[in-house]
Design a protein around this nucleic acid. Structure first.
Length: 726
RNA sequence: GGGCGCUUAGCUCAGUUGGUUAGAGCGACUCGUUUACACCGAGUAGGCCGGGGGUUCGAAUCCCUCAGCGCCCACCA
């Protein structure tokens, strides 16, 4: 008998990984039902569930995906080996606006535009596009070793998902937590849709700032093009400089289109500290101005259209885009003697679309809004009472702070790619009515004609319901078994977009928290700590690394030293270190297999004090690693096993073993034989135990070694072997 | 404007309720290729744990303060 030949060569991940994945998948053990069927876990075993954050089906996986797959796979494999009823449910996200933006870029490259296509054509094309990406992405997730249950995979546009989302929409309407109303929304003139506050970025800019004579007042603005319709002058009620003016007084003003009558409005929003303390308002194109107008029941008028061009009210400037019109308007103001001065060094931050960086133009639109405060209060309570435990404490504070300052949520999007909003809109009075079953034929308010709401839901409205839609709320057995899920593992950047919404909507719809724990990982940056981006050219493709260094090395490189919640600098040299570690394990195995070759290892016979001590140490490691895994300290556990395997097992124990195993010169043959046998058992025990500890982190090489062992004291795959101290 | 962090070896970072000579990877230097592995081994150098103050028998760890860096949220007439 001799040891397998493969150990005579360095470890070659590429030669084994895909076969191993196939083996796992064919075993069926990714599916907890199969585990029960085959006695790997019991029906009444403690359930453990993770819903995978569905990756966007509009591209390939990046380093952040590799991190979350690794973390969740560690959690899943650990739970499975502990005999828990373990489900990791995968999915893919249609990612509404995100995907439509990606697809529009693709169209632009081909010289096409969505505005030249019918909704149906566009929808069909994007559907095909996502399905193609989805299957490509699934292959990549497999390559990373994910032990998720593919038989339960869902797409965010599957019928079951849509049905549940519609149910929630209807319920919100019944509970008076939904309304449709004219509001100031963030409008992107390029993408032709409204965006939530979270989808707006701010950019620091330096622009000219104009001081303009407005009747007896001086007003300041960086945006003279919005001023055509301004006919209200707002000032703070306590501003003594303007004590002579009373609320509602009229003032004659020479303005852009001739003489107008403006009205004085006293409102707390007027800040005496800024400029002259006087401002005019443009309710249609400013959220703050709109609020003031609402408070005093003022008129409002649209000045700029959805494409960012001036309307007829702008007189000779009508039809011009803002950038072109602005200097010409300033010129006119100057000619009219209204321009007092220009400040060229005005620095301010302007709202821009987070996708295209085009300036956001606030517009008044009828949209569907969710009243979030009541939902947020319950979410807050769940977090504060630790019904949902958030890791880390810092992220917990961030989440609570946001929930305390939450605003109503605009869930309407003027895009094609998404779940249609099931509602009818009256063509006459603009009233909107929820209509899940497509039954309404006339406006319930005015009897007018109705048409289908052309808008779709904000993606986060549907993905905010993902934990219970995936599990089949309310009647599916999976829902009953696995909800609330054990842990939600996702990126720190999704705390507001997704996690907070899942907590709110989960509590609202099911009455229970959607998950008991939230684990936030940080962002994956390049080796120098810079954010990866295509334009910087510093993007590291995890799949390339996986092929070059082995998936196990990639996984270790992503985990070790990466404390929860903190960003990670992905250094290729670090991954190389774990590639070497893979090979080290390989050679440890080779040594131990060689030294125990032909020995019956079915019963342990550890007799010497030294060996008992070694086993005690090993058990201490097992305890510590288990504790760290239970405390979500994956970065410490991985490092501990690494350190033990290399610097304890290989450097010390193996070296010392050489003299025990090869003491041929001694006259004390009997004693030596016992000691030798004891050491052989010891080494073999350490090897099998270490493989188990390491399996969640480095599943491929450990499984590959495991299946080459002659004697395991337990049958089957390492993936479903019993965790050492469970 | 509000909130949250970070500052530890040349570089990138760990360090879990305060406890003996502060750790890892990479890098540097010296030595070593005798039968697990050169994708290796043995060893060395390198840190007033950002500055200052305080609590304590004891502080990288807790408190205050200063400096530098970063992230998030809100917003600007």
């Amino acid at each position: 008998m001799s040891i397998p030949e493969k150990f005579l060569k360095p470890y070659d991940p590429q030669a084994v990984e895909s076969d191993l994945y196939k083996l796992w998948q064919e075993s069926g053990y990714f599916n907890p039902d199969k585990c029960i069927e085959n006695g790997v876990c019991k029906t009444d075993a403690e359930p453990f569930s993770i819903i995978m954050p569905p990756p966007n089906a509009n591209g390939s996986l990046h380093a952040g995906h590799a991190l979350f797959v690794t973390l969740q796979d560690i959690m899943t494999r650990f739970a499975r080996m502990q005999g828990k009823r373990t489900l990791w449910l995968p999915g893919a996200d249609h990612a509404g606006f995100e995907t439509q933006v990606v697809y529009e870029k693709k169209l632009a490259k081909e010289g096409r535009s969505r505005f030249q296509m019918t909704r149906e054509e566009l929808y069909k094309e994007i559907w095909d596009f996502t399905q193609e990406n989805k299957s490509f992405m699934e292959g990549q997730i497999r390559q990373l070793g994910a032990s998720c249950d593919w038989s339960r995979e869902l797409f965010t546009l599957d019928d079951r998902v849509i049905k549940t989302v519609y149910g929630t929409f209807e319920q919100l309407a019944k509970d008076d937590l939904l309304y449709r109303g004219l509001r100031s929304i963030n409008w992107c003139p390029k993408h032709q849709t409204g965006l939530s506050n979270l989808e707006v970025d701010y950019q620091e800019r330096k622009d000219p700032f104009y001081y303009i004579k407005y009747g007896p007042f001086t007003i300041g603005t960086a945006r003279p093009e919005t001023k055509f319709g301004d006919k209200y002058i707002v000032m703070h009620p306590d501003d003594k400089r303007y004590g002579e003016y009373k609320h509602g007084d009229s003032v004659e003003v020479d303005w852009l289109n001739g003489k107008i009558t403006a009205t004085i409005i006293k409102d707390e929003a007027g800040d005496p500290e800024i400029g002259s303390g006087v401002m005019t308002i443009t309710p249609w194109h400013s959220a703050i101005d709109w609020e003031i107008a609402q408070r005093h029941n003022l008129d409002y008028e649209q000045i700029i259209d959805e494409r960012g061009k001036l309307l007829d009210i702008a007189g000779e400037f009508a039809g011009m885009p803002i950038t072109e019109a602005r200097p010409k308007i300033v010129e006119k103001l100057d000619k009219m003697g209204l321009l007092i001065k220009t400040d060229e060094s005005y620095e301010h931050s302007v709202p821009v679309c987070y996708k295209c960086s085009r300036e956001i133009e606030p517009q008044l639109k009828e949209q569907w809004f969710v009243k979030t405060q009541p939902l947020a209060d319950k979410a807050k309570e769940a977090i504060e009472s630790d019904k949902i435990k958030i890791i880390t404490d810092e992220q917990k504070k961030v989440a609570l702070h946001w929930l305390e300052n939450i605003e109503d949520w605009n869930i309407s999007r003027q895009i094609t790619w998404g779940i249609p909003i099931p509602a009818k809109i009256c063509t006459e009075c603009k009233h909107g009515e929820v209509d899940i079953d497509d039954k309404i034929t006339e406006c319930p308010k005015c009897g007018g004609k109705v048409e289908q709401d052309p808008d779709t839901f904000d993606t986060w409205f549907s993905s905010g319901q993902w934990p219970f839609t995936t599990l089949g709320y309310p009647n599916n057995d999976d829902f009953k078994t696995y909800y609330p899920t054990s842990i939600m593992e996702t990126g720190r950047d999704l705390v507001f977009f997704w996690v907070s919404r899942m907590i709110m909507l989960g509590l609202y719809r099911t009455g229970e928290v959607p998950f008991k724990t939230v684990f936030f990982h940080g962002m994956v940056n390049d080796a120098k700590g810079k954010k990866m981006s295509k334009s910087k050219g510093n993007v590291i493709n995890p799949l390339d690394i996986s092929e070059q260094y082995g998936t196990d090395a990639l996984r270790m490189g992503l985990i070790v030293g990466n404390a929860p919640g903190s960003d990670l600098n992905l250094d290729i040299q670090k991954i190389n270190a774990y590639k070497k570690f893979s090979n080290k394990l390989w050679n440890i195995t080779r040594f131990i297999l060689t030294e125990t070759n032909g020995v019956d290892l079915s019963k342990t016979a550890i007799t010497t004090d030294t060996d008992k001590q070694i086993i005690d140490n090993l058990n201490a490691i097992v305890e510590q690693v288990t504790k760290e895994l239970n405390n979500y300290q994956y970065h410490l556990a991985a490092d501990r096993i690494y350190h033990y395997a290399w610097h304890e097992l290989a450097d010390k124990i193996l070296e010392e073993s050489k003299s025990i195993l090869h003491s041929s010169t001694s006259s004390e043959q009997e004693v030596d034989k016992t000691a030798k046998l004891s050491r052989q058992y010891t080494l073999y025990t350490i090897l099998t135990t270490t493989l188990k500890l390491l399996h969640p982190f480095m599943p491929f090489i450990t499984e590959e070694i495991w299946r080459s062992l002659p004697e395991k004291n337990e049958e089957g795959m390492l993936m479903v072997a019993k965790w050492p101290n469970s």
